[in-house]
Design a protein around this nucleic acid. Structure first.
Lengths: 244, 244
DNA sequence: CAATCTTGGATCGTATACAATTTTTACTCA
DNA sequence: TGAGTAAAAATTGTATACGATCCAAGATTG
């Protein structure tokens, strides 16, 4: 019951390559693995990503690790400090607000675009995605559930077939994942919310206006589900988080 | 009469550092110089940016040049092809449409934000900026005029004090510069248009709604000023373009 | 003569070595 | 004991060297 996930992951990977100007060759692998780990909350915000350590784990030289970290820095998942190294990004409260403001502007517009052009095949794929998300959630794998929940949004952007918006949304979703890791308030994982299903409904009817409206309120809802107060930092070890 | 430009340039530089996760140390210099050259249309789209050549020109090793090129690739100004190297990006017609659609969505919203919070000092700065643009235009320096015209938009984003939007807009403006280089139709440089002045008017009155409306029609106007047909490629030499 | 194959040069991808900077540790002295 | 300082360890920044890939020109063959 954990298998339907794989195809979604591979999908995500190829799309990443398409949208961002990502590093080439081996660096892309590392980039993707680190990103997945961060998005599944295996790596907590603020964690140091030592070049030597990452390189040793993935069997690569510092040169290529450096390229990966730089790429992730550009997408907002990693913060680099001069002469101090790379860390999993720890979005500030201010950035949290800004990210969700941006999402509230862009994603509804993109949902509208998607509703107009979505095909039956894509509808089925989205349904499958929701099933996988549901399964992950009920199997207790919070990390993967959140990862998939984010992917749902990027898939909509891909359906809208607008690469510029898709790239923006991808970056925003990534950062949202970190923000949720830091500031999520409600114990009920609201991403299981009915918003995604309501959206599916609008898509099936090709009702762009409805999709836009639903998406907007969904994001406003997510935003208001955050508890934007200062939190103390966590400091796990990298090896212990990734080696598994 | 060419002096007022300098402060704007330095300003731009520090802001870049703030918004993007840019490389550190010497790489940032090269990044900035290349970006400026591209934005002033000294480097035409499609031009090859050989690592050795760039490194020799700026007196840096390939390592740091590589980092710079990667950074520029992430902001959309440079395209990297595996095992072939880096080129000044040559946005497709499709990307051109997408970029201006994105601008038409985001920039009006940001203009509204800016109108609400703009200070007298910032108003004066924008006025000075328009003067500099005007001067560059009438001194025949098209490249610099276009560069400054773009900066006008990013300055508004900075005034709105919204880093996420500012980052997006910066990237969009950069790509717009390339798009204009490739597809501009009108011989009258419409960036001298009255839109910028009209916008200033709305800012002075802190009329957000008006600012939003003006900005939107300004960008739609720019979009329609493009001639989106296939164009042949140009191939200048890098040395001859930068050594001056 | 045209098409294909081979070969040489140029350029990129990656690893490694060294220099510069930061962080930690150990030590002295009040 | 605690603060200040200095030396040592660890980590990043940068340069260079080597192997891999691509491109173009010239040779070869049908």
């Amino acid at each position: 019951m954990t298998k339907p996930v794989t195809s979604a992951e591979l999908d995500q990977r190829s799309k990443l390559h398409e949208v961002f100007a990502l590093p080439q060759g081996r660096a892309l692998d590392i980039c993707f693995k680190l990103q997945t780990a961060i998005l599944e909350h295996k790596l907590t915000p603020g964690l140091k990503l030592s070049e030597d350590e990452v390189g040793e784990i993935y069997g690569a030289s510092r040169t290529v690790v450096r390229a990966s970290l730089q790429a992730l820095a550009h997408s907002g998942l990693v913060a680099m400090e001069k002469n101090r190294g790379a860390f999993v990004a720890k979005p500030s409260i201010r950035e949290a607000h800004e990210v969700f403001q941006a999402r509230a502007l862009i994603e509804p517009a993109v949902a509208r675009l998607a509703a107009d052009v979505i095909t039956d095949r894509q509808l089925a794929q989205l349904h499958a995605h929701l099933d996988a998300e549901h399964a992950a959630l009920h199997s207790g794998d919070m990390g993967k559930a959140l990862f998939l929940s984010g992917n749902f949004h990027t898939e909509i952007a891909d359906i809208a077939d607008h690469r510029v918006f898709a790239g923006m949304i991808r970056s925003l979703i990534s950062r949202s994942s970190l923000i949720i890791a830091l500031y999520w308030k409600r114990s009920d994982t609201a991403c299981e919310s009915h918003s995604h299903h309501a959206l599916m409904n609008a898509f099936e009817k090709h009702d762009g206006a409805a999709a836009e409206k639903i998406q907007k309120s969904h994001i406003v809802d997510l935003h208001s589900g955050l508890d934007l107060k200062e939190k103390p930092a966590g400091g796990t070890s990298l090896n212990e988080a990734l080696r598994g």
